[in-house]
Design a protein around this nucleic acid. Structure first.
Lengths: 200, 200, 200, 200
DNA sequence: GATGAATGAGTATTCATTCAT
DNA sequence: GATGAATGAATACTCATTCAT
């Protein structure tokens, strides 16, 4: 009576299902970004997504699962971008590579401003749980590690350098999202400053 | 309605009142640091403070007022410390002054680790509302401004420099609080790195 | 500041608390008897008890706890009655003792008709969990055991005899509660019949 | 609206329809027996029956109708068995007839253990509504009535005798189903005991 | 007819706030 | 003032029922 369900092309229903799921996740992102991780009732999320509450539970087992899905989904989008940003600079001298990386990353982040706010808030509450931080950490480790190998970064400050970069990026992201300014223009000056130091 | 309370020496009753108030604020700090801004019911805070829920409302008009009081209280403690840190270095060359400032600040912060967690979490939810950020901003503005005047910092990156410092400090604070490590040892390397740049 | 709370006579507040608790349990009993173990919303129970929903949670951790408390409370009332009914006949010949026991038990049950309906229904869903069945079983075991010792009951049907008694009692209870008839008058004929058999 | 469906031989389609209906009822029985009258969501029943929820509504107007159908179906199966058990003993002396009846009944019940659990639970919630109780009552009334006619049972305990039999049977059924033991072996001892009384 | 996603009323539970003692 | 029980609005979650495909 049933078509084989393991090897079939996505049916129309599947596509709609996926669309609905995405709509719900988007709505959650929007409302959570606006009101915080605890300030977005499911009824509101449902309303914003154009569905009824019960529908949420056809896609997610509970509130936590929805939030987790939001993080997973964005992480799935952002991770390849980070990876690409890491790859693209492979072979370049450290300074050029770091600059390219930060520029690319901010470009990618600019398309996900709403989520970044959520992600950075969440970092305190659900540490390292599907956050973007570990991915960023990994990317920076690789790049700064290369810098050490190229003798462009002293080994004993390598970890600190990644902290400076990631800390500064977060600060910039928060400030610029709050102000409604784009992230991209911040990339270049940040890298320049970090590379050559605060003193001229 | 009462006798004027602004200009008489504190009676014993006033002192008790003040002590109770402080106990409540401390309890709030502790529980909010442990469970997040939304994970600390008033009944728990009261219990921890050794009073009944109803009593909270003799000291604070509502939950929000209590939280605001927590921030105010800590801000009141930390602001003079920051100011002192700013003052102490007055007249020093920029590099030395910045170093002294970060060292002093981390020393002060080390005594308020719990609150720092709360404050950094709150920054996302209630931006610039009684947070420590504006005070920090002001202090750094002054110090970095001096650096510009001393021609130790280029004017057009002044704002960015403060971002780098504050961003890096926050990153360090979070990581070290999470790890249970003291903040103080992080001060020196951070300043050195920021001053001379990532490249040797 | 606080009175010693471990060794004080029940205060007025304690008494009120107990009264409120009892009112809630009574309301639960009434509504569950009327609409079944799943047919009594907490809001209704609260309303019937004359309190708000939230109040229930000052006395019971959740719905299940309230139901458990209902069973515990009634069991606590009924168990001593059963025990007394067992004691009272001690030393009597088996037949007289069994008769006295059933008479006493039905007298006690008559005062708790509502709860009996609940208890008998619950026996299927929460087997042996704070039900009256185990207490009854124990009582009958003792009495019938004595009958065996007195050679008034053959050993190999002892267990079956208790089944017959308890089964018949339950059947009578259900029928008579449904019909609004008292239980007491059923006691005597039941025992007579069981003792001498169905045939004249 | 359709062609008259009452007087034509069952088409293939009718048979399939009937099979599907039966599968649904079976699934309902299984899940209700396992989780109680309120613990079996329609989605689960549908899944177990191998159909979609919506399909249930092509066979039953609502949940209640499905449950009613379950009871009707089993009643339709069990009633003739009871009737046969009643008939088979017609003409026998009371004792032999009662024995035969209980033996036959337990044999029949053994094939419907799952349903019996449901039926006995339901008796409390929806008394006399399509339960097996009334059929049993009728059968016992007839047999015990005959016993009275044969002067093997005193008229004034006739009703009570049926209570004893039915009560004891239910107790046995529940205990044995819970233990996973067959019902049949219980029949003989029960009847013997009831007939000759508890005393030797 | 069959499907299963969507619906939303119904219910349990939490917690800031009030107020009688 | 202090107490803590009472309040009820707010919220998460369930599930019978509907209906577009």
């Amino acid at each position: 009576m049933n078509r084989d369900s393991s090897r079939r092309r996505p049916t129309l229903r599947d596509q709609q299902r996926e669309a609905a799921r995405a709509a719900i996740v988007d709505a959650a992102e929007e409302l959570i970004a606006a009101h915080g991780l605890h300030g977005a009732p499911l009824v509101e999320i449902a309303k914003r997504a154009g569905v009824a509450v019960g529908t949420l539970y056809n896609y997610f087992t509970d509130r936590d699962d929805l939030v987790r899905a939001l993080f997973e989904s964005r992480r799935l989008t952002l991770r390849p971008m980070l990876a690409a940003a890491v790859e693209r600079g492979r072979g370049l001298p450290f300074a050029a590579r770091l600059r390219a990386f930060v520029v690319d990353t901010f470009a990618a982040y600019d398309q996900h401003r709403r989520f970044l706010k959520v992600a950075i808030e969440a970092e305190h509450l659900r540490p390292n749980n599907n956050t973007i931080a570990p991915d960023m950490q990994k990317a920076l480790d690789e790049i700064v590690g290369e810098g050490v190998a190229q003798q462009q970064v002293e080994a004993d400050v390598a970890e600190l350098v990644t902290d400076v970069i990631w800390g500064t990026m977060k600060a910039s992201v928060l400030r610029r999202i709050a102000d409604g300014r784009p992230l991209a223009p911040a990339a270049d000056p940040i890298v320049t400053l970090i590379l050559r130091g605060a003193r001229p």
